[in-house]
Structures are given as structure tokens and as C-alpha cells.
């Protein structure tokens, strides 16, 4: 019964056309490249006009290869790096318009879990302190309250309470990632940005952490932005997936729809490149040639045209718009105009 409710919840989430928790519009991030004397030489166009919404208890997966701008997107909405342009509306308030002092109040609504559990925890602090630290910064509760909550969170994420006084180096990678998750939960956020949270973990540990993430999402009513290069992992956890290439979002669709009916040639190539651990499912590979072009000087028109097997004349000059194909399935490609 409970399982059924959870399942129903998972499916209806993205169809829920209620107000999104977070609306990202036209997000852009250019990193300036300067000469040693400070002269501006150009820009790395890391993120170019990205749009998406996050819903309560929903998960949006961002996938793409290295350098596609998925991490920059995640960091930009938390203002860990300041975006160049665009708007990030959280419950109707544009976070990018706030000054640092006003924004501090919103920081606790959005937390982040990083890829590398070895470098994202301060090695000199005990794990209990690490989890209490965000609550201290946001002046939540008394010292005793904070300690109690830290203990609760440790237990919830699968770390024994008596390990409260241990240091990060005493834990394995999977346990450290659990501590990172407990720390993100400490301030009771509404949104967690997960940047490759299981990529550094072995498969047997990876599944434990993914299951934990799914459990706490329901329990704490969280919205996830799940960034990963691993499509199988994203497929498992996300309700909706955005595929990024060279700073652009080229396709966005509900998870099942994307895997059943990928439209963009890049998405198709990406899906066909995933090695499947099953010998019975052999399939035709679409191997795309060459490497990703430099984001400093991206190709004109459609950014994928230099590697696209279906490139047409107009792809070289006209940038395709992101257009709705079917319910919730959007693609930016001239083949579908």
C-alpha cells in the first residue's frame, strides 16, 4: 500500500502542473578569459540560455559529457558562482536580484552534495561538528538542539550515532557521502543540488546511496537537481531529464519518454554509447566522430552540427529553438521543425 502511494507520487509529480518550487529562466554563465595583463581575450561560454523548473519531491536530472555546463548550471542557481544573466525564481522571488545579505536567508533552502567525498569534508573537524556547522551559521536552535539533530541525521543516513566524534578519514567513501548528505539535510532545505553524488563510489555502495537519496526525498519533501554523466543512474532516480551539450540544453523530457523516444541526434548517440551489462541486448551503435568543440569558440548555428550525422545546411547558420514536441518533451533540433 505504502509502496503504491510512493509509486503514484513518483509518477504524478512531474504531471503536477502546480507552481514550481524553482524556475530557472535563460540562465547564462560566461567565464572571462584574460591575458596576464588583464586584457579581456574572450569568454568561455559555459552555460547558454538554460531553462528548467523544479517541483517539490521531484527530481530533474542533468546529463551530458564533461564540459557541457551541467555543474556550472548547478552551482549558478546556488550562486556559488554568479551567473552572467537570467533569473532563478524561488517561490516567486528572483534570487539573482538579491544582495548577499538578503540571499543568505535563502541559502538554507538550497543545499549541495558534492562528488568527491574525500575533499568536501573538512579533515580537521569531527563529523558531528561538520553536520552542526550549517545550523550554527544559520543560527538554528540551541547547541543541544543542534547536537540532537546531528545525531538524528547521522542515524537516518545510516551512520551509527556513536561515531559522532570520529573524523572524516575514519570513514569509507560511501559513508563519507552519507555524511555529506546528512550535512546538506541539517538546515532542512527544500532543494538539494547533487553534483555527481555517486560517481566516485563502487557499484555495491552506489546502490546503497541511491536508495538512501530516494528515501529521504520523500521523507523531507525535497526537490533534487541531480547532475551526472551516468545515464543509467539518472534514469533510475530522475522524473525528468535535461540533456546538455556545450552549454545548451538540447532536449528535455520525462524520463521514460526520453529513453523510449529520444529525439535529438546527440541524445540518441549518448544513449547508444552506454554499455549495457547484459549480453542479450545487443544493439546498433551510433558512434559520433570527433571531440566536443571548445566552448570558447562554439560552432555557429546548432552547436552539435560539427558532429551530427544528420546535419543540414541550415544547422550551420540558424540556432534551433527549444520546441515542444509532445507533452513535456522539448527538443532543440531542426529535424523536428
Amino acid at each position: 500500500m505504502l509502496l503504491q502511494q510512493q509509486l503514484d507520487g513518483k509518477i504524478t509529480e512531474q504531471k503536477d502542473t502546480g507552481t514550481p518550487l524553482l524556475q530557472v529562466r535563460n540562465l547564462k554563465k560566461y567565464f572571462p578569459i584574460t591575458s596576464p595583463f588583464g586584457r579581456l581575450k574572450g569568454h568561455v561560454k559555459a552555460v547558454e540560455s538554460v531553462n528548467f523548473d523544479l517541483y517539490e519531491k521531484g527530481t530533474l536530472g542533468l546529463v551530458g559529457e564533461s564540459g557541457c555546463g551541467k555543474s556550472t548550471t548547478g552551482r549558478s542557481i546556488l550562486r556559488l558562482i554568479e551567473p552572467t544573466e537570467g533569473s532563478v525564481n524561488y517561490r516567486g522571488k528572483d534570487l539573482l536580484q538579491l544582495n548577499q545579505r538578503e540571499f543568505k536567508g535563502f541559502r538554507k533552502e538550497m543545499q549541495m552534495v558534492f562528488q568527491d567525498p574525500h575533499s568536501s569534508l573538512n579533515p580537521k573537524k569531527r563529523i558531528g561538528e561538520l553536520i552542526e556547522e550549517p545550523m550554527e551559521i544559520h543560527k538554528i536552535g540551541t547547541k543541544a538542539d543542534r547536537m540532537e539533530r546531528a545525531m538524528d541525521l547521522l542515524k537516518r543516513t545510516g551512520i551509527r550515532e556513536d561515531q559522532y566524534f570520529r573524523f572524516p578519514h575514519e570513514f569509507s567513501g560511501g559513508q563519507r557521502q552519507r555524511i555529506g548528505i546528512a550535512r546538506a539535510l541539517a538546515v532542512d532545505p527544500a532543494i538539494i543540488v547533487l553534483d555527481e553524488p555517486v560517481s566516485a563510489l563502487d557499484v555495491s555502495i552506489q546502490s546503497q546511496v541511491l536508495n538512501l537519496l530516494e528515501e529521504i526525498q520523500d521523507e523531507f519533501k525535497l526537490a533534487y537537481l541531480f547532475i551526472s554523466h551516468d545515464l543509467s543512474v539518472v534514469r533510475h532516480i530522475a522524473d525528468e531529464i535535461g540533456v546538455m551539450y556545450l552549454g545548451h540544453m538540447v532536449e528535455k523530457a520525462p524520463t521514460d519518454d526520453l529513453f523510449a523516444n529520444p529525439l535529438h541526434p546527440y541524445t540518441k548517440a549518448l544513449l547508444s554509447a552506454i554499455p549495457i551489462p547484459d549480453r542479450k541486448q545487443r544493439r546498433e551503435r551510433i558512434i559520433i566522430k570527433g571531440d566536443v568543440p571548445s566552448p570558447i569558440d562554439p560552432p555557429s548555428g546548432c552547436v552539435f552540427h560539427t558532429r551530427c550525422p544528420f546535419a543540414m545546411e541550415q544547422c550551420k547558420s540558424i540556432k534551433p529553438e527549444m520546441l515542444q514536441q509532445s507533452d513535456g518533451h522539448q527538443v532543440a533540433c531542426h529535424l523536428y521543425n
Partner: peptide, 15 residues
Amino acid sequence: SIPTITGDRSQKLHT
């Protein structure tokens, strides 16, 4: 325990 692109998504992962 490996999530695959063809498996059943609604099932919890084996650990």
C-alpha cells in the same frame, strides 16, 4: 545492484 537503462525504475535498487 547496477541501475541499467532497461531495468524497472520503480523497483528499489538491490544492495
